[in-house]
Write a protein that binds this DNA or RNA. Structure first.
Lengths: 238, 238
DNA sequence: AATTGTGAATTCCTTCACAGCC
DNA sequence: GGCTGTGAAGGAATTCACAATT
């Protein structure tokens, strides 16, 4: 068996395919072709097939894919046959919102604990009843509650420090909301959700489509050119 | 002047470069080489130079880049010379957390309004004083408060409906937290922050590093193989 | 007839390596 | 000497197009 390295992009798409298959199976659809799946997103049918065949041959030529079977296979590939308990560090607005995040319901991800170092907050519970623990007890609570994923919702200034403790506690999967490069051992996976990049990217798109905030209406074609000119001028004047 | 299409990946990296330059300029560093920048993240110095030269020639051969100048150019390219007012639709946990998100402070993004259709919530304010408006008044408030970016923090079931109203109100930049494919006209940019994909991806990584939740310790090398076998067996048995 | 699985072609992105410049 | 800007090489991801299969 080939054990080709599987790309992150493929994994992300599997998640998207799975979402659609969950829907289809609820609708009672029994079989779907890669072409049908492809048109539901803006994807290429060959890409779907390529992605899937990296894990086995799930389809039937001339027929398509059995929805329920493929769904179960994707669940297995994505490690969703076991449930995951999530601990969230940082009981600020973001941490608490995530703890009670409705996106978890119906999935096998479950927020089970919040952590903070603010004595005011420790001992309190969220609306959905998730307790805030002292981050000093991180390691113990992780074991006690079988936490395998930690979400970091703490200020950027302390995040590496916190992460080191998380790693020391044996956690191998981390999701961070701070826009900061993080250092971890090779066997720990860190995903960063960087809202700053998303907003900057939106801002760039706005500028380039010629829409100024307040709708002052700058012409689109001229825009990128103008920017370069601004920069080139600055370059010369320095 | 060439008007080559600039890739999304490049734009995202510009945001990262900018973040570092903001830091460097605060530290009083006046000049930096692409090599120095590259080692600060795990990037290739040629990539940084390639990214930058798509917008002009900002560097000085033999010297490097002037930190403050490059910072200002990146700000201009990313459309950060004007400030952006953000409206958030959905005054649930997530929406409110975002409204008071500390990541905005010091940036020129500012949450200025929340929207909801729950009469209970309308008229209330967040801790930081951002008011919740009736989504019926969306268009008016957008104009009144010069909102140019809308964040969607509403349930997936109604998101396309809400988005249609947002587009009708003339908004060209949208950030969505719902894991759902969205339809918009060509001139509207939608960014999706898909936490489900992030968690699935983490889950996959955990499975593949041989770490089971609860640390039951499955051997790593065997894992992907096992999954395929599971799937192939299901395939045969169907 | 229809649809998968896949080598080949293509496109896109990254990295190398060096000419050009300060 | 040191560093940028860039053509060329290399690598990765996507798409095409068709043989294989039911």
């Amino acid at each position: 068996m080939k054990v080709e390295k599987i790309s992150e992009l493929t994994i992300d798409r599997l998640s998207i395919y799975l979402r659609c298959l969950e829907l289809l199976s609820k609708e009672g659809v029994e079989t779907i072709s890669s072409q049908d799946l492809a048109t539901r997103f803006n994807l290429n049918s060959a890409q779907i097939r390529k992605d899937l065949t990296q894990f086995g041959e799930f389809g039937v030529r001339g027929v398509g894919y059995a929805v329920v079977k493929l769904r179960d296979c994707l669940r297995a590939i994505l490690g969703l046959e076991v449930s995951h308990n999530i601990g969230i560090i940082g009981a600020g607005n973001m941490g608490i919102a995530l703890a009670d995040y409705e996106g978890f319901t119906g999935s096998n991800f479950k927020a089970v604990a919040l952590f903070d170092n603010d004595q005011e907050k420790i001992g309190r519970k969220t609306k959905l009843g998730i307790e805030i623990y002292d981050v000093k007890n991180l390691k113990d609570i992780i074991k006690e509650k079988f936490i395998d994923i930690i979400v970091l919702a703490v200020p950027a200034s302390v995040i590496q420090l916190v992460l080191d403790q998380v790693v020391a506690a044996g956690i191998k999967g981390v999701l961070s909301f701070a826009p900061v490069q993080l250092q971890v051992p090779e066997d720990v996976t860190v995903k960063i959700v960087d809202l700053t990049i998303s907003f900057h990217s939106l801002s760039h798109a706005l500028i380039n489509s010629g829409i100024r905030p307040n709708n002052r209406g700058v012409k689109a074609d001229e825009e990128e050119k103008n920017l370069v000119v601004i920069c080139k001028e600055q370059e010369r004047s320095s």
